[in-house]
Amino acid sequence: MAKVAIVGAGPAGCSAGYHLAKSGHDVTLMDKQGFPRDKVCGDGISIESIQAISTMGIYPHDIQKLASEYAPIHHFFLGVSNQISHSEQTNLEAYCIPRAVFDQLLYEKAIDAGCRFLVQTVHKNNWHHHGLTDAFDTIIDARGVSAGEVNAIAIRAYWTVQRQDLPETALLEAQIHFDRSLGVNGYGWIFPVSTQHDLIKLNVGVGVWLDEYQELKINVIQLFKQFVGSNKIAQQILSKVVEQQSPKVFPLATAKKGNRVTDGKILKIGDAANLTDPLTGEGIANAILSGFHVAQAVNMSRTPEAIADNWQYLYESHFEADLRAGLRIKAFRKFSFMNYLLIWLMKQNPRIARQVSHAVAGVVPYNEVLASLKY
């Protein structure tokens, strides 16, 4: 049995804690905040994420039973703002859930599995100063984007709309709008996150990559307002809004090449390991799966050195190929016509539409999408 410290109690940390505690290890789960807590995010829980949390014993019927707010997602919409769009229905169900609600479910699972919880802040990488390197056999860094390499920034706001003022499809559809005003790879989104009642809550936001954001030379709040003011669908919804919260900014640590996820006895997972999808900014699935696989690395190894080697190997085996494929697709999109062409192909070819939509939903790996576009 190993003494394990997990620093960060988000999806990655709670997943690692759950699996390690279930395996009989002595696990201390730390976070700078107590629960319940809010997390600024897009709130999208992809199909892959829903599959991933089943490893923690959480299934769709549990979400519908335990979550105070949620929205089942059956359609994925991709569009170039005000020009062309395609909406694809999926048989498998995704969700949008406010992170305050979703993270609480995972936290409770980790505690029920046997994790001890401690409110403690660990600044930067000064593990020795906090006494962690001496007190624990293994330290798992799950502090999120603050410990990763930030390369994107996003902003989101919650809007509330009367159910009667939205078409029925809007209650079941996650929309992504490519928009050149947000940079080559920038996009806006409109997600329903609470659809059980007469008042519907929507998560509306934009995401931009830092290298492109610096060239835009405009404040990110203004970028959000610019998207909302120019996108016709966002404008239509905004005209019906009965309540809106102020937009909030949050950073993202998306995939990067040549990624090292170990540093001695420190094992990085989730956003701390830059495992966020480089195209959509979705990080939940890889966060949860990285917690599962890092627990495997601990379980199959006898020394800290072996644990580190095995976690790096499992990262490369299970994550790197798809993240690299996502980075290649992102590079293709530097040409201004690529987003338009992709959606046009989706409208013409049902197979491509299904492949691309399922890739956005996390069901089909990006390297399979690249292969399918050749035929």
Rank of each mutant, 00 (worst) to 15 (best):
G264Q: 05
I73V: 14
E320Y: 06
A353T: 08
A9C: 12
P167L: 01
Q51K: 14
L279H: 08
Q244V: 08
L216W: 06
P98G: 10
I153G: 03
A295Y: 09
L106P: 09
I63P: 07
D137C: 09
T90G: 02
N125I: 02
K265F: 01
I155W: 00
A2L: 13
P365A: 13
E93A: 07
Q235L: 11
G79R: 10
Q348E: 10
F136N: 06
Y375V: 11
V7P: 04
L289H: 02
A67G: 09
T160V: 09
G44D: 06
L342M: 14
K347T: 12
K330Q: 15
V4F: 10
R354P: 01
V145E: 15
G207L: 13
V204I: 15
Q244E: 13
D309V: 02
G24Q: 10
G10D: 07
Y315K: 07
R324P: 01
M300T: 13
I218T: 15
Q83E: 14
F292Q: 12
L341F: 12
S181G: 14
Q51F: 09
S87W: 02
S81Q: 13
H177R: 06
M300F: 08
A331K: 13
S246T: 12
A147W: 00
M1D: 06
L66M: 14
V363Y: 01
G148P: 06
K124M: 01
I53H: 04
E168K: 11
D165V: 03
V184A: 14
A94D: 08
L327C: 07
V241H: 05
F319E: 09
K248Y: 01
V119S: 04
H25N: 13
I218K: 15
Y59R: 09
Y315H: 07
R324W: 00
I266L: 14
G144Q: 05
V249S: 04
I221F: 13
V261F: 05
R354A: 11
P192G: 11
F77A: 00
S181K: 14
A100W: 07
E212Y: 00
D211Q: 12
G57F: 11
H128A: 13
S54C: 05
P278L: 10
F35P: 05
V204F: 02
I266G: 04
N349F: 11
T133S: 15
A21W: 03
Q83P: 00
L323V: 07
N219M: 02
I47D: 08
